[in-house]
């Protein structure tokens, strides 16, 4: 009965929100997740492009050496 009265009172539970930690945690995750995912894709594409360029330059140098 006590707990029901507490729920009915708008301010009795103030500062004791059991979901507060979850709110903060999920806000942090949801804020960081898109940045991390898009950052990951950009990082991967840039790294792959650099690798491809290095391989291309090496191939070009090989061809020039033969000629």
């Amino acid at each position: 009965m006590n707990s029901l009265l507490t729920i009915a009172c708008a301010v009795c539970g103030a500062g004791e929100d059991p979901a507060k930690g979850s709110y903060v945690g999920m806000t942090l995750i949801i804020s960081a997740l898109p940045l991390a995912m898009l950052g990951g894709i950009i990082w991967y594409v840039v790294r792959a492009a650099k690798k491809a360029e290095l391989a291309e330059n090496a191939q070009q140098a090989k061809t020039d050496g033969r000629a």
């Binding site: 707990s3 729920i7 929100d17 059991p18 979901a19 930690g21 979850s22 709110y23 945690g25 999920m26 995750i29 949801i30």
Partner: peptide, 12 residues
């Protein structure tokens, strides 16, 4: 999942 987590944490 966020909505689920917060609802579960706030459940009596």
């Amino acid at each position: 999942i966020s909505a689920f987590t917060i609802s579960k944490a706030g459940a009596l």
